[in-house]
Nucleic acid binder design. Structure first.
Lengths: 150, 150
DNA sequence: TAGCTAATTAACAATCATTGTTATAATATA
DNA sequence: TATATTATAACAATGATTGTTAATTAGCTA
């Protein structure tokens, strides 16, 4: 994601209005590395400006994705997560216990991509996503009993 | 997934009953490489034995997963797909146009796993999933306009 | 082979994440 | 400041999946 002021510019240039709701959403996303869900963003925006609807949050997030300013990631935990990191190529670690997602930088290039391409037949590769599943630091420390609180 | 007769054995050994519905589901999954959705399995079972409920299909599929006989894959297309291939390690090609999923054999070992582990910090890796997104052979042939029929 | 009992099924409602609809409100610009 | 246009909120709706419960069936045993 670009900085907030860049986003404002992008919004102006594309004839979108700068509303308090949108600014607050930009603000929550700015430099966020937590991969929040829409619900979590909604809660944070609410605590900043008092009122938003969940619909507005979803709308704005989808908009930001089509403007290539965020990435919507779905790693099969039942809820999409929103990642403002679109500049550096990266992949994701997913905790099988608490469902939290962390970034991991992996250089999927050269050898690997070549190997992928050789096995993919007639398929035209657009991009490669690696999801690494396991246990995060926090859940490791707690044993591995199921719990869901953060 | 094991062969159907093996599944029947597993079901008997775990005090589960062999019902026509379950047998038909086993039969649909047997050697299936199409990554069908629950709905698709439901349709096929219905055409075989006349009546099932979707609930029964979901139940049996979840059961088969916890018995490690199938893999539930969720590649962010909004619907889970069911893959009886649990014996060979493999990954998935996902068509961005028609959402179909194909298997791809990739050797994620040695170098790669080492690289992954080095970047993952305190995270304890259980398994690595690679999803390659792009266009399948069929959709390539059709240009890349959105269509959803198979 | 009939009867018994636990397991299974089907019908239906419920859930959760996400999207559609529409009347009202707010932004940007003249 | 008025006006055109876009955005918001409230609400209903959707689609995939799961919960509930009464009725049915598989498989054991007499």
């Amino acid at each position: 994601m670009n900085s907030i002021s860049n986003l404002v510019d992008i919004y102006r240039l594309t004839n979108r209005k700068i509303t308090p709701q949108r600014l607050a959403i930009f603000n929550v996303l700015d430099s966020n590395t937590d991969h929040p869900t829409a619900e979590e963003i909604y809660e944070q925006v609410k605590s900043q400006i008092g009122n938003v609807s969940l619909k507005t949050v979803y709308q704005t997030l989808n908009e930001l994705e089509s403007l290539n300013q965020i990435q919507i990631i779905d790693v099969g935990t039942g809820t999409s997560r929103y990642d403002p990191n679109v500049n550096q190529s990266h992949h994701h670690l997913v905790c099988q216990n608490c469902s939290k997602v962390k970034d991991i930088e992996l250089d999927i290039s050269g050898e690997m991509l070549k190997a992928f391409g050789q096995n993919s037949g007639e398929f035209k590769i657009d991009r490669v996503e690696v999801v690494i599943r396991g246990l995060c630091e926090v859940c490791l420390g707690k044993g591995s009993s199921k719990q869901s609180e953060l």
